[in-house]
Amino acid sequence: MSTFPQERYDDRARHDGRPQTLRLVVVSAGTSDPSSSRLLADRVAARVESLAGQGGHAVAASVIELRELATEIATAMTSQLTGPRLQAAIDALAAADGIVVSTPVYKAGPSGLFTSFFHVLDNDLLIGKPVVLAATAGTQRHALVADDQMRPLFAYLRTLAVPTSLFAAPEDWGDAALNKRVDRAATELVLLMDSGFARKVRQESWGSYQHELGSANGTETEIDLDTDMMRLATGGSAVR
């Protein structure tokens, strides 16, 4: 059974009870600058920083604008080649303690750019990581996209989506209730980041998830020789 190479994931000191820097990565699929998807994600990120600060943690936040990766994402989808900017985004996610993802909704689902990005990631890249799901749209009719469509994608990736998803249509930007939900989602994310859940689940159970040689951003280099297929490779017949 392989163990997760901890030094790649967590190359900084962690001591319980002492201030630590939490790595937050924002992924936005908005296409204008600034986009409402990015604005919504930034409000979550700001609340996360403030809440984490109250708990004595610094937050190092970085932003991945998928718009800038659009051609590399398309290339990865069609040619399985990872360009340098896409690789930098993957590296950031691999090191993240918490993630905020935000997408515009055009046609009753997350944008194709958004889903394409998550479809080209290794299945085991984000295991156990806490994620805030956020979506924006021009009409309230898309309000369930985050819970109905984004949540299953992040469940497949074995992430831990926080209980509160966020959605903002134009009228929400003038409604204080959106702020309340942002606060709630940020609180949930900070608690999960601070708990070290992702780190612990990887330490204790990494080998029980599916991996491929070279997956988890190239860190999965262990080869299990104690399998039926490996025994078959060295003579004999498959088990009937």
């Binding site: 491929e212 040689l213 080869i223 020789l225 297929m229 490996m230 078959l232 490779a233």
Partner: peptide, 12 residues
């Protein structure tokens, strides 16, 4: 290009 089992068989 991706199967350790094939490399193992070649080695065996």
């Amino acid at each position: 290009i991706r199967s350790p089992e094939i490399a193992e068989q070649a080695a065996f």
